[in-house]
Every structure is written in structure tokens, then in C-alpha cells.
Amino acid sequence: MYEGLFLIDNAHASMEWDTVVKHIHDVLQKNGAEILKTEKWGEKKLAYKIKGHKRGTYLLIHFNAKNTAVATIKRDFQLSDYIVRSLVVKDDKIEELSQIGVTESAGDKDVGKTPEPGIEGVAVPVETNVSVKVAEEG
């Protein structure tokens, strides 16, 4: 499990955010990585100037890749025009966290399947009702 934090040039981030994210995803997938979670931090003021940039947008990505592929992934990000700076860190504890993140993002898309423990008690009977209705109709 790896965690990548990318500092993205603000000019690109404000104009063409989607293409930047797609570019990063493409680089990861080209190297056989499986993306688990993508999170935008938003625009922040940098603690010091980097290549003349005073502000930048951060993007956090959790991904799963072979250890042999990480070196090429890092080099590809260094060559990228959009990315000012990147940090890839190995972390085996992400697994639990990112699983929560994945389920949350999945829950946003299809509302019926929210496996959040707090809402579970409410969500489960609704789901069963739906399935029963479907069964009756079918």
C-alpha cells in the first residue's frame, strides 16, 4: 500500500483540474497500480516558495502497486509538467483507512448501500424492503 501526495501547479489546477487528475491516474495505471482513494485538499499557501510558486493545490492518492513499479512511478511524476513536487510513502496501515474511504465514496454514488455503522440500523431495513418489493414485482 502506498500513499502519494502531489503538489500541483495552481495555474493548471484551477483551469484543467480533471485533466490533471486523469494524467496522474493514467501514470499510475500505466505502471500497473490500483487506485484506492483520491482526495483533493484544495488550494493552500506553501511554507516556502517552490520554483516561484507561492500557492499550490494538493492531491492525495492511496494506491496499491508492486514494489518494482514504484521507482518508475516516482520518475514519471518528476518528469510531469503539472506536478511541482510529489512524495510517495509506503504505509501498510492505509488499508483499513482507505477501505473506509472507498466505501464512503461508493456510498455517495448509490445511496442504498451505505455501510456506515451509525446508519446501518436504519439503512438495512430499507434495503430489505426494496429487495422484497422487487421480488414481489418480479
Partner: peptide
């Protein structure tokens, strides 16, 4: 040191 590299904290 990681946070400094990513300009989250100052050197």
C-alpha cells in the same frame, strides 16, 4: 522532514 519537503511546514 516529510512535511517540510512538501512545503506543509517551513524549513
Amino acid at each position: 522532514k516529510r512535511a517540510r519537503f512538501m512545503a506543509l511546514l517551513p524549513y
